[in-house]
Amino acid sequence: MAITCLVTAMTAESKPLIEAFQLKPVPQRGLSAWVGNEVCLLQTGMGAQRAAARLETLMSILTGIDAFINIGIAGGDRPIGQVLLASSVHDHTTGRRWYPHLPPLPTTALATDPANPSVTQEYCEVVSVAEPSSEYRKDCVFDMEAAAVLQAATQYTDLSRIQCVKVVSDNPQHPIDDFSVKNVGPWMRSTIPTVQMLIDWLASQEYKNTTDTFKTQVHRLVTHITELCHHSATETHQLRRLLERYLAMYGDLPSIEALGNLDSSKRLLKHLDDQLLSYPVNY
């Protein structure tokens, strides 16, 4: 089952999402993580290094995560509470920039503001800085984690499966000194339609599930065969590709029994190769 991992920095950001997605704690010491049906949440704490380390830990204990959405507050010259989908994420320290592949335009308005349900999704660049910023600009918002999450998450998946959603918490009229943590809950709740839209889009990428299932099927059989019959690293690689090709051509994998006597890796590879050569291709 493919899981989308929501990544937040602070407890106040996590709580509304944990409630909304009905997530249960992951029992792992030193890790603030929750999991539910097709969604999990990782709270990294502040700072880039923590984000990378916690993501790595989560990936080692929870299988099936194949998408990430960083969600949190950010400051900019925009209305307080405005929800933004990041068009790009810029690491101010290193100068590195990522462009997540954005989903198709939503066909219906996202009700990010209950008072104004026709509001359309806004986009802008998220600039991650090392220290809280009191600079406010119209063309970007500032946060402290997005770049670290992007950097870490690209180790595991591609940029269409890593997105970033921010809600404006401070602006020139309400600077960071006025910030009160009690406002974070309602702001984070207003991100949920955007987050849900992303989760639905990610889940709708059927081909991804198909290829994942395809690769998993092949992987299982490779593991099984190599337990029964020694294959060198190169032979294992050849076996994997032959079985992929077999599955692509025949629509199913051979049973262990059909592979015959598994006493020689070379004979097995030859057997599979012969089967593929004899497959009739007709249109």
């Binding site: 068009s87 790009s88 920039r97 990522w98 462009y99 592949h101 954005l102 989903p103 198709p104 335009l105 986009y123 690209t154 998946t157 591609d158 940029l159 269409s160 499966r161 890593i162 990428q205 081909y207 991804k208």
Partner: peptide, 26 residues
């Protein structure tokens, strides 16, 4: 469409960690 200003096309087109097949859908 959403419009995003960029410096050079390669910043988007050539960046690592992309999925050609996924992008081809949209």
């Amino acid at each position: 469409s959403r419009q995003i200003s960029i410096d050079r096309y390669g910043d988007v087109f050539n960046q690592p960690a992309q999925d050609f097949r996924q992008q081809k859908q949209a």
